[in-house]
Design a protein around this nucleic acid. Sequence first.
DNA 1: CGTTATTTGTGCGTATGTATT
DNA 2: AAATACATACGCACAAATAAC
Lengths: 254, 254
Amino acid sequence: MARRTDGAKVAYRMLADQLRDEVASDVYAGGRRLPTEAELASSHRVSRQTVRRAMQELVAEGYVYRVPGRGTFAADRKHRYLRQLGSIEDLLNLAVDSELEVVTPLQRRVDIDAASRLRLDSDSLYCLTFRRLHQGAPVCHTSTFHPPAIGRTLTDIPELATVGAKTATTIIGLVEARMDGLIVAADQSITVGRVPPEAAREIQCEPGAPLLRIDRLYYDERDRPVELAINWYNPDMYTYRVRLQRSQHRGTRS
Amino acid sequence: MARRTDGAKVAYRMLADQLRDEVASDVYAGGRRLPTEAELASSHRVSRQTVRRAMQELVAEGYVYRVPGRGTFAADRKHRYLRQLGSIEDLLNLAVDSELEVVTPLQRRVDIDAASRLRLDSDSLYCLTFRRLHQGAPVCHTSTFHPPAIGRTLTDIPELATVGAKTATTIIGLVEARMDGLIVAADQSITVGRVPPEAAREIQCEPGAPLLRIDRLYYDERDRPVELAINWYNPDMYTYRVRLQRSQHRGTRS
DNA sequence: CGTTATTTGTGCGTATGTATT
DNA sequence: AAATACATACGCACAAATAAC
């Protein structure tokens, strides 16, 4: 039943993974042209249809764009920040250039509001509080809440039990690694709120200051909530950015 | 050169359009099962491959989900608010249940900051200010800025020249209709800011109150900025929501 | 300015694998 | 075990856009 995020047996996904890596690692830097479908098909010993299927993925993910009659091109790096917070993968990769520092260790607690948002029967759940540092500076204060069945699987992680411990991970990444299945979706809401005093201390702003509040509720494959994360961002240090695209965007570009 | 958003000549997109309408209009309400690939293929006189291509679109857009061995199902309505602000199409369709009321008519003005964000040589541009009403209540105050070449094409629209005029459109929709080509992308940034006094008056909140500020910079097919929109939302009346999904999400879903 | 070669886009047929019932 | 339904893969033909001649 357990599925892998990596091990892609299927041909088109193996090809997509390889091409994605090559585009990301600037093998085709500066908007260079990729090999044609026919070339990739023969060099990878697959049919042209399989190449096309792989390309579909990369276009959807914003790594490349295609122009009929001209070819396939690596997207500019600045156009690639589509991949910064527009999909689940982006959230899982959030830790690449930031650090998590525990404020309140993982513990069982009662929180009626969080429990109802997690659709729990009881009011008891697991809770963790931390801040996220970017080059040493605190940018965000986060509380995560998990159903008992999920929270239990995190109790053996020493870094989450120690105040002040720093790690380069994301909580949702740890959760997914311990799950039987994948995180497939998250509902995200963004609003403005008055920061609670405990959080204000941690990210060096005045209590009650208006901060950017981003809530995310993550779901597993069976549509069950596995994590509620409440994030407080100081707007002086962080702006939420996404690139929106036309969905069947098959267009000329530059 | 001009392309149509609607006129889908191609078979798979015609099928996708029809199925999307049917799902949206609750023909398959409440998570009902859609016909199988084979059934759709024979009833629409296309190959099963064409049906699959159409389904790929709908899955990507969040209208349906598929389970191997079981079938294709209409997504719950609540899972469909993916289509609320996650793509360019969503922004173009924003007007379906809201109204635009002109505060300051379209006029030529000088704005150094906006001009530089639109990458203009000169500081002169077209500017329009309005508020957006939802069931009569003001939810948002917006200023849009356009390069002279684009703004000029909007000057013949009487609704944009009259203070207090109400229309059920979006500015970016009007712009696209007058363009030679499509809007293909938008960079969006969300932060918190102190509302300027002019805007505060219009949406009934105190000057200097912390509001949700959403900026969007729209691009045409040649990557040229055609509109900068600065939106101020009262967080009591509006929360920005999106559903994030795993990109190649082919999963079981309840 | 048309012609031609290249490259991607669309459409169909078929075979086989895998998940669910 | 069998039937059903979606997933992957390959092959081929032709259309449409682009660029070079």
